[in-house]
Design a protein around this nucleic acid. Structure first.
Lengths: 208, 208
DNA sequence: TCTTGAACTGAACGGGTGTTCAGATAGGGT
DNA sequence: ACCCTATCTGAACACCCGTTCAGTTCAAGA
């Protein structure tokens, strides 16, 4: 029965990862069995081991791939910020909008990326943490620069970075594409809240 | 060996719930076995069934108890807000500070409350969702009133409610009691960010 | 046409799962 | 001193787990 039309390694491999992503996001890593993943792909459990050495690696590959995509997508965004002036205010706005848009396009990957970290081996966990930190540092640099220029009123850039990312991540818990608000509208509202939450008060002295 | 000193139902029952809370928070509901919980208590697995009809109920009892405590603690906070003037600004500040303080005191319960919802039966899930909504409505009412009085600049009170709670919940992912910042300091920084993120711009017209 | 080997099956491995229950144990009431 | 019963044990139940592997199938290369 092997080697049916269109059932080569190039096709089954991605299907295995897609099935794992879907099921891990829906039920959690620990609650999903290799047999369930295999059934979703339409294959016996043993066949999965042609595409992953074990269940744990299947998870960490998904997470590393996702985090890699986040990092390179944000890198690709930087030139566009420069093109629009490149100040901390433009950077912060771009970050908020990028984060919302990018993450809403991959809700399952984002979901498991912060739900299933504890199911990684220490080595895999450390690697993921480093990537996450790199992403957060991108935001913190914007805050640091804005603070230095007196544009932002931020007492602790590290805490603020985490608080802003938490707020932005929250969109995943409720956003539905067919919902009341359009993606653009959601993006704008979040970008506005982010901007206001760190903006320095306009000094009355300047106006008076 | 039964009925050792101090090993009555009144004592073992709470110990079972405490062990389950600890292990569920650390490893996740699906990854923790009844035998592990029993071992933590110092008892055989069968004995757990004197204190819970099944594993699922053990989880939902923990979640419902926690959510009940959140709601009643917030109710108890309301008179104190009234005493301090009772406006939307005072209410919002009180909510942020209450949320941070209360949740940091129960990190494990909070953790499982938004990680393990999917492991509940639909009935138990619905009950929990209703309680969570009631809590969120407390915050939204503050925003609605502040918006009506022109104190807050909030285009969508529902979205803003969820965004603010997400931001406040984020504190759990990084706060360590022995860390760099004191609880009071963290509380103040978050309360400040919350306040600024919804505050209406001071109109230059008023000043000029 | 024959051979090769990638892709997959299906059964098996040892071990863990939630849950049940007959029986042992021992503190409190009489 | 005795019994009662709340409490707990330890074994068993049927089933599911991740992983391995000998064997089967069949498209492609020679």
């Amino acid at each position: 029965m092997a080697r049916k039309q269109g059932s080569h390694s190039d096709i089954t491999g991605p299907r295995v990862r897609a099935a794992a992503l879907k099921l891990f996001a829906a039920h959690g890593f620990a609650a999903v069995s290799m047999r369930q993943i295999a059934a979703e792909v339409g294959v016996q459990a043993g066949a999965l081991y042609l595409y992953t050495p074990d269940k744990q690696t299947l998870l960490s590959d998904l997470l590393e791939t996702h985090m890699g995509e986040v990092l390179s997508a944000w890198q690709a965004e930087l030139p566009r910020i420069e093109a629009r002036g490149g100040g901390p205010e433009a950077g912060l706005d771009a970050f908020a909008r990028f984060h919302i848009r990018f993450h809403l396009a991959r809700p399952q990957a984002v979901f498991i990326s912060y739900m299933e970290l504890r199911n990684l081996t220490p080595e895999n966990f450390a690697k993921l943490e480093a990537m996450r930190k790199q992403y957060e540092d991108g935001l913190e640099q914007i805050l640091i620069e804005g603070k230095a220029r007196g544009l932002f009123d931020v007492s602790d850039t590290k805490l603020t970075t985490l608080a802003l990312i938490s707020m932005l991540n929250g969109v995943l818990t409720w956003y539905k594409p067919e919902g009341r608000l359009s993606l653009d509208r959601v993006e704008s509202i979040y970008a506005d809240m982010v901007s206001k939450s760190v903006r320095a008060q306009e000094r009355s002295a300047q106006i008076a």
